[in-house]
Each structure stands twice: as structure tokens, then as C-alpha cells.
Design a protein around this nucleic acid. Structure first.
Lengths: 152, 152
DNA sequence: ACTTTATCGTCAGATTGATTGACTATTTTA
DNA sequence: TAAAATAGTCAATCAATCTGACGATAAAGT
């Protein structure tokens, strides 16, 4: 099975799709709110930063503050995030994850683990270790910073 | 550098983004029409099939015929595809790639090749061969069919 | 201090890519 | 040959974004 030059990016796209479809299938299977891609990245962001504002989130996600505001509004209504007065800036609102939001993050980690396990079962854990290294090399070469919101 | 369970899907998403950003950068750098993701998959589809209709394309892309129709309209205006009377069905229009469309496909192949080369330079061609195999294994496990339009 | 400028968040409107629904002209099926 | 299905279009709608404008507060300049 010889590879032709230029096939990797396409395979990557396919593999990516397979994995996120797998994740989506799992999420849908257990019901819950119709959380969308950006929401996951929002959670991840709020885990790291404390007293982050909507504008911080917008910058991080690479979207406008209006779009970020809408996302936050939804997530607040569904009980995943809170908006409380900002401790030092009376214009701003400090965002935070509710327990429900934190549970979701853990749950998502578990689901990602399962998706990964399926691939590991296919090619073996050693190969997956290698791929991990190689993917890290690629990501590092891009300055470590990858824009969030891979659009899924 | 030990990997934690569940990191692979995220890394995959990042790697995917890095590659398509790289491709986008190349495409933008040389100007041309603002071709969007679905367009590439349209070309790929039209290369394989002859006398394909708009509905065929819609089925392939997994979108409505109206959406497909709009895409085709654009591509026709920009001179990438043609719509001619269908040889056997007078309701339908047979789609085809113009020379310009074929050139684009070749150009895109070259750009994908360059993106791939960059990764190869980073981890070595042998590792890339392995990754190729492993990605193929993943794709095959999904029935070989991966939905087009990875949403980029 | 006080004025100017920048920033946080919201409101309103426009844009884009897609959707559903309805309709005509054909083709296929029964 | 009548009934059902299909190719393509038009129109309206939706969802997720964007741009632009605004009041309130904060930070910077003089």
C-alpha cells in the first residue's frame, strides 16, 4: 500500500471527520442539550482562566464579542456557565463554569477516550503513541498555538 | 512525552486545522476565486463521474439540491464547471469540469503535496508512511465511505 | 483633577450558507 | 395511459455569524 504525495491532508480530513462523527454519535445517544463545537472550546477556556470576560472568550475563539455573547447567553440559560459581576471592572461580567459545566467536560473527556480506544484497538497502542508524538511535532511546529474552533 | 487518554481526537482536530490553514494560506497567496470547501469536493466528484446531475452532487455532498444548485451556479459563473443538456433525461443538466476546473484540481494536488512535505520534513518520510497506513486503517474501519465536506 | 480615549457589553441590522416547502417539466412505474 | 416519482427552480426562513452604533465604565494624557 504505497501512498501518493498529497494524500495525507485528505486522509487527515477524513480521519478527523470519522472521529468527530463518532463523538457526535455518542453525545446524541445520551441526549442532553444540543451543545455545539464552540461550546466545548468555551468550557476548555473557562477551565483554565478565572474571571474571564466575554471579550476574553471572543478573542480566544477568534470571533466577535457579539457572537461570543450569544454563546455565553445560551450556555447560561442551559446552566453550564455563570455570569457574575467582575471583581475589579464594573463594566464586565466574570464568566465561570457551573458544576454541570464541569461534569460535561469530564464526560466529554471520557467520550474522547472511547473514540481513541477504538482507534487503538485497530492499530495497536504503540502506533498510537507514535502518532501522538508526530501530531505533537506538527502542532509544535505551528507555534503550539492552534486556533480553537476547528469548525465541527 | 506520555500521552493521556483522549488527547488524540483533540490533537487530530488541531493537526487538521493546521493543515487546512496551511492550504488556505497557499491558495490565498496566489489569488484566484474565493473557492470554498464544498467546491473542492465538487471537483473531485465531477472528476470521477460523467454526466452527473445536480441532484447526484447533492446526494454525494449530503446537502439539499437547492444548496448544490447554488454551488454549481457559482462555479459555472467562475468558469470551473459546465451545465449542458443531459444526454438521456430532458429534465436534468449534465455537469462537467472545464479545463480551468481541471487545472484547479491539479493545482490543489500540488498544494496538498507541499503541505504534506512540510510534515514529512518534520518527522521523516518513514513515519509519514506509517501514519498513512494507520489513517487508512481508521478510514477503512468506517466502511471506507467518509462523508465529504469535512466542514472546513 | 479632568478631559480624552479605549474597552465591556448590548441593541439593531445585514450577510451567508444552509434549510423546508411549493411548483413546473419531465420521466418512470403500475 | 394514468399515477407516482424525480430534476431543477423560486421563495421564504433559519442559524451563526458579521458590522456599526451606543451607554457605561475605566485607563491614559495633560
Amino acid at each position: 500500500m504505497k501512498r501518493r504525495r498529497g494524500e495525507i491532508p485528505l486522509l487527515m480530513a477524513m480521519a478527523y471527520r470519522i472521529m468527530i462523527d463518532d463523538l457526535h454519535a455518542q453525545i446524541e445517544a445520551e441526549g442532553g442539550d444540543p451543545l455545539r463545537p464552540a461550546h466545548g472550546y468555551t468550557f476548555k477556556f473557562l477551565l483554565d482562566r478565572d474571571d474571564a470576560t466575554t471579550v476574553d472568550l471572543a478573542d480566544h475563539l477568534g470571533i466577535t464579542k457579539q457572537a461570543a455573547s450569544k454563546i455565553v447567553e445560551e450556555l447560561e440559560q442551559w446552566g453550564y456557565v455563570t455570569r457574575r459581576p467582575h471583581p475589579t471592572d464594573r463594566r464586565a461580567r466574570a464568566l465561570g463554569l457551573t458544576p454541570k459545566g464541569q461534569e460535561y467536560v469530564e464526560r466529554a473527556n471520557e467520550l474522547r477516550g472511547r473514540t481513541e480506544d477504538r482507534w487503538a484497538a485497530l492499530i495497536g497502542p504503540d502506533r498510537l503513541d507514535q502518532i501522538y508524538e508526530d501530531l505533537c511535532a506538527l502542532v509544535d511546529s505551528a507555534g503550539g498555538r492552534t486556533p480553537p474552533r476547528p469548525v465541527w
